[in-house]
Design a protein around this nucleic acid. Sequence first.
RNA 1: GUGGGCGUAGCUCAAUGGUAGAGCCCCUGGUUGUGGUCCAGGUGGUUGGGGGUUCGAGUCCCCUCGCCCACCCCA
Length: 433
Amino acid sequence: MSLRNVKGTRDLLPPETAIWQAVEDVVRRVFALYGYHEIRTPLLEDTELFVRGVGEGTDIVGKEMYTFEDRKGRSLTLRPENTAAVARAYLQHRLQDQPPPVKLFYVGPQFRYERPQRGRYRQFHQIGAELIGDEGPGSDAELLLMLVRFLRELEFESLTVRLNTVGDAASRSRFAAALREFLLPQRDALGEDSRRRLDSNPLRILDTKVAAERELLVGAPRLADFLGEDDRRHFSRLLELLDRWRVPYEVDDGLVRGLDYYTRTVFEIASQDLGAQDAILGGGRYDGLTRDLGGPEVPGIGFAIGQDRLVEVLPESFRQRCAGAPPVVVVPVGEHHQETCLALGERLRDAGVVALVELSGRSVKAALKAADRQQARFVVLLGDDEAAQSTVTVRDFARGEQAPVAQDRLAGWLRERLDRVEGDPSSTVAAGR
RNA sequence: GUGGGCGUAGCUCAAUGGUAGAGCCCCUGGUUGUGGUCCAGGUGGUUGGGGGUUCGAGUCCCCUCGCCCACCCCA
């Protein structure tokens, strides 16, 4: 087989897809409780959107975009993240004319051209939410509360939000200037990457993992000292609210996110169960983004969850609830009963029973074996004897018993017993409610 | 973009330079219409690809492709 999926992409197969769907069901249910509505933006955007929205100095724009020219020579890019596109759509459709705040969520693939590794794919999937049109810390708190609720629904036990404030645009640029001035004399001691960032994005040097560079930073100016009064009040009010609602968090003043649009509140949640790429979600406030895109200044805050990573560390208890409903398998004993079995199958489906009809003509033995492999709870057999009396033989795999049931009563008979089974914790979330 | 590891059956893995194997999976059978356990049999490989060394290469050398992990950065 020489044809394969493209590097960094992957096929999601059953039963894994059931887990993805179950996660998405929780997203829709929980986010709706907070008044969020889904937005779907194109996978393809004008390259300029990301250059202006995400920032020219960022790694994403600098070296990770899937950019190409279309047949008319326009530069297009497969979206590397979705916040810029949501902001673009917000402006383009004048959503600022709707009563604020506008609350939107999205689920879908994103693309970044990087070397794949554990938890990092070129096509990856994000679940995100954006709250646009309110600048108060209450919105920050509510957004985090929604995240916590979401993660609890997925049965995560102990995930801690790390958060920080990077100040508004003015505080940030004053700090960046001071940091640059501090590091300039030691420029040669910095690594290549950090030297480059000295010009483009000095804040990023703060979270370097190079030990030697960490030492250089010991006496460096601190972001906290450059925060304005408003920045400080915003952040402390947020912390108060999180305390009030017992959201587990820790403040990490080294946390600086990699996208240029962040202002004030930034946060992330990581998991120890992942490899080196351990952030399962990240987000923050972006009060200047709409202006950077050429629109009016509208404050906003949002987050993006890495769905691939989230699914990878999903608690086993949740995963187990994602198995589909066990099928009932209908087996004709003799080819001439196939049509009757097909009809029985349809009647079972009318009653909401997952039914598989054995159509291959293989032996009863082989059919039962296959049914067992498919986790069937009940098998329905129909041969000459049953046909003569308008009954079927229902075999209960779990009990190892079988009994005759009238064809007319079959659906009800099975429905009753399957409902009882589904009360069992080993049954499905998907089939429930 | 940079480093490191690994490529043998669908999966997990064996095979001192000397005939490519096992387990699992899948299929069939162990009497007439009955799963799980057991037994017997069977399908499936250009050992990632190409070149070289050798009487002989899965094994040694070179090139190439792919996968994985890490760095950088992020979800």
